[in-house]
């Protein structure tokens, strides 16, 4: 069999499909981050003050921080179950390029976590009295930001896959990478609240997403190889 007959596209789609089926069959695990998202966002009015004027100022930041923490929570299982049952070795030994397979796993992660967070966001924004003119900015910034968080967090998830109870370490590794995403995301929402043009923030996020799409799969693949070698 020659290398030219490799069908990477099929392997990519099959792996995305497999991970979606897995997520669908373990609804508890898939919905946990979403429930967590809802809880975190509803703690702020209780903890600060349920005043409309104050909350509408904070709403963008609260929704964004909630989304960030929910993604972090979901990342721990990204490669861990594959490592535990030996599937990770099959991934590493596949003739297909590992970054491609990694991208498939990240895509499935975003489709199950990121999309759910985007769908929930308007509900939370309403609850927190976010001015309606800022809704498009919130949704667009989340649409660009959540895949970026899946990609960047995947690096930490890959590095900690063999660490027992590596949750804290994963958080410490991933949070610094999330800071630019958070700054541009909340920045976009804030400028929209003030009625200004927020396209600059979104373009920056789109640029970061392109950078992440190109580099993160390579970094994750390299991390997985290093971690498996031991």
């Amino acid at each position: 069999m020659s290398v030219a007959s490799l069908n990477g596209g099929r392997a990519f789609l099959d792996l995305v499909k497999r991970d979606l089926v897995l997520a669908f069959r373990t609804p508890g695990q898939t919905l946990n981050p979403v429930a967590f998202y809802l809880m975190v966002a509803s703690l702020f009015p209780l903890g600060i003050a349920p005043e409309k004027a104050l909350l509408s100022q904070l709403a963008g930041g609260i929704v964004w921080i909630g989304a960030l923490l929910a993604v972090l929570l979901s990342l721990d299982s990204l490669f861990r179950s594959d490592q535990e049952d030996g599937s990770l070795d099959q991934l590493l030994l596949s003739p297909h390029p590992l970054p491609l397979l990694v991208l498939a796993k990240i895509s499935a992660h975003w489709l199950t976590t990121g999309v759910a967070l985007i769908v929930m966001a308007p509900l939370l924004a309403l609850m927190l009295h976010l001015p309606t003119q800022a809704f498009p900015a919130l949704l667009l910034s989340l649409l660009l930001g959540t895949p970026l968080m899946s990609l960047a967090g995947g690096i930490g998830a890959a590095l900690t896959v063999r660490v027992q109870r590596g949750g804290i370490l994963l958080t410490l590794l991933s949070l610094p990478l999330y800071i630019p995403v958070l700054i541009f995301g909340t920045g976009a929402v804030q400028t929209a609240v003030e009625g200004l043009s927020y396209s600059g923030h979104l373009l920056w996020m789109a640029a970061l997403l392109m950078l992440g799409l190109c580099l993160a799969p390579l970094a994750i693949a390299a991390s997985l190889r290093i971690v498996a070698d031991g």
């Binding site: 069999m1 897995l22 535990e84 030996g86």
Partner: peptide
């Protein structure tokens, strides 16, 4: 090499949900 190899590890790589 990877196109020509089957690796059977001591963990079976079988997903319990599938």
């Amino acid at each position: 090499f990877r196109l020509s190899t089957f690796y059977f590890g001591h963990k079976p790589a079988v997903k319990t949900e599938l």
